[in-house]
Amino acid sequence: MEEFTNIFVGEETVKADSKIIYDIAIIGAGPGGLTAGIYAGRSRLKTLIFERLSPGGQIAVSDQVDNYPGFPEGISGKELTDRMEKQAVRFGAEIVPDEVRKIKKEGNLFELETASSGIVKSKAVIIATGADPVKLPVPEEEKFRGRGISYCATCDAAFFKDKTVAVVGGGDTAIADAIYLTKFAKEVIVVHRRDQLRAVKALQEEAFENPKIKFQWNSVSEHVIGENKVEGLEVKNVKTGEKVLLKVDGIFVAIGTVPNSNIVKGLVELNEKGFIKTNQNRETSVKGLFAVGDVRDTPLRQVVTAAGDGAIAEFSAENYIKNLEYIER
């Protein structure tokens, strides 16, 4: 019962005002963007947070977050980011359900081209656009996406009640997904290209103890088989070259992320994988433009590091704005 009587109320959203100049425009309402919003609101800066999908970012689809300090029993990703959202709104940050498509710097002002709010101007910008899941590298991905291939276990697990599913990947997300899926599926096969998992030990132990989870080690996905929907996943053993057809009805993919850095391509320096380079102040190669969280070139992508980034970036942005006003005077 609890599954469907769990109610999320959400926060009120607003429209961006194209006639005023905002102090800080934050792009993305995941943990990084929301934390920057909390800090900016407390500094009484005129702050906007753009969100194109739904506040919370990638972690909002995590059933259980056990490594964010202050929640000894763990907390669902959505509940955690709902709280951050409320906190940001409490201090005056405004959340705008819109997509920023392009960023330009004209003199000392940033101009954000949006999908439905026109051009929005701000003194500083914090990019918190996060990352998207890497697509399953098989020729049939597009054909079966939404027809058995899924990138969101909490969204789609219910369609695989008493079925067999594969989870591709061996990191935290993959293993947490596999554990969550056992609430619905009768069997979960973890397909991983190495002979050991990359996920944190605590998750590994939980997965190894779960009788519904099986492992297909040293294996990479080659083909998805099926008529109109997924009926099997053909994997190849990277050591022996042997091919195996796993009879599965669903394939959940968690093999890493690609940064959502398109809107600043050509504007700021990116690393070879497309993540935004910053200095320790979280400032990019463009003055007044900052980056936080998963879209940033960083060794660890977690809620806690994104939140830390958000605080630092807001602090730096605030100093940048003060300095700007000083020079202008």
Partner: peptide
């Protein structure tokens, strides 16, 4: 939709 899908309300 499913109630647990954060991308669905939009």
């Amino acid at each position: 939709v499913t109630p647990s899908c954060p991308y669905c309300p939009r």
